[in-house]
Amino acid sequence: MYLPITIFLLVFITEFILFLGYSYVTSTVHGLYVRLTKDPKVAKQRKLKYELLRMKGELSQTSSQDEFAKWAKMRRKLDKGVADLEKLNSEIAFSKTAFELKVKSVLWVIVHGSQVIMVMWYRKAAVFYLPPGWFGPAQRLLSLPFAPRGSVSVAVWFAVCRRMIKALALTANDFVVSSEKKIPKHESVSS
């Protein structure tokens, strides 16, 4: 009885990933990756941002008319820091895009490839057998493509699980939306 539960869990995980969206999952995974690996570029970016904010504060306190030489030197240093930050930001954005592309590819394989592999691997296996005569001629349809007659095939079970999970998600979403509409807002009593 492990096959139907395995298929249900696989469909649940893949539908959850699809519900969240590839972009959200990849950006979350990238954030975790950066925190766990303590990326030196990100640390340098934070340090540079802090330094630039400090320099901006000093520059705003320096009079451009009274202390022009000091102000000009600070301004050039600030401009160089901003250029360095922009270059570092573009490097980080490029590496983030490359990382997210790899994660999206892995997610695609997990979502679609795992199901195709399961269907191909267990194409002749019965997920479970139906009571004889309950579904009449539909029994043959439920066992398509290669499962024994009178059983439910892996492909059909994937479709049933996906349909049930999507229906439950829509019902839960409708329930949350309708309960939010019914919550009365507190009005102040005017005297």
Rank of each mutant, 00 (worst) to 15 (best):
S90T: 10
R149D: 14
V111T: 03
T6Y: 12
F19R: 02
R140V: 15
L101T: 13
C161W: 03
E58S: 11
A125N: 12
T171C: 05
V42P: 05
E58L: 15
L170G: 01
E86S: 10
I110G: 08
F19Y: 09
Q45Y: 13
L59R: 12
L170T: 03
S90F: 03
K181F: 07
A147C: 05
Y33D: 01
S90W: 03
Q139T: 14
R162T: 07
F146D: 12
A138M: 13
V160H: 02
S64G: 09
R140I: 13
P145M: 07
S27C: 06
H30K: 02
V177D: 01
E51L: 11
F68K: 14
E58K: 14
L130W: 07
Q139R: 09
S143G: 06
V127Y: 03
S90C: 06
G150P: 02
G57N: 14
I165C: 00
E51G: 05
L130A: 01
D66H: 13
M1W: 06
S63Y: 13
K181L: 15
I5Q: 05
L78H: 13
A172C: 10
D174E: 08
K47R: 08
K73Q: 14
I110R: 02
P184A: 02
V82R: 13
F135A: 09
F175M: 09
Q61Y: 09
V152A: 06
W71G: 06
R163S: 15
F146A: 11
L48Y: 01
I110N: 03
S23Q: 09
V82P: 01
V176C: 07
G81K: 03
M1F: 04
V103C: 04
G150R: 00
K181P: 02
K47E: 11
S105M: 08
D66V: 15
H30F: 10
A72C: 09
K47G: 01
V111Q: 04
G57Y: 11
V154G: 01
A169H: 07
E51D: 15
K102L: 11
A126G: 06
A83K: 14
R46E: 15
S63T: 10
V154H: 05
F175Y: 09
A69D: 14
L53N: 14
Y24W: 07
V177A: 01
D66Y: 15
G136T: 03
Q65R: 14
F135I: 03
K44V: 04
F16A: 15
Q45G: 03
L144D: 08
P145V: 06
S105V: 02
I183Y: 10
T97N: 11
A172Y: 03
Q61D: 15
K102R: 09
L9N: 07
L9H: 00
E86Q: 13
Q65K: 13
A98F: 10
I92A: 02
D79L: 10
V25P: 01
I92H: 05
W157T: 01
E187V: 08
V106D: 01
P137N: 13
L52M: 10
N89K: 10
V106F: 09
M55A: 08
L48N: 00
K181D: 08
S95H: 06
L141I: 12
W108E: 08
L48H: 01
R75T: 11
S95L: 05
I5C: 08
L59Q: 12
G81P: 05
S64V: 10
H112P: 01
F94L: 12
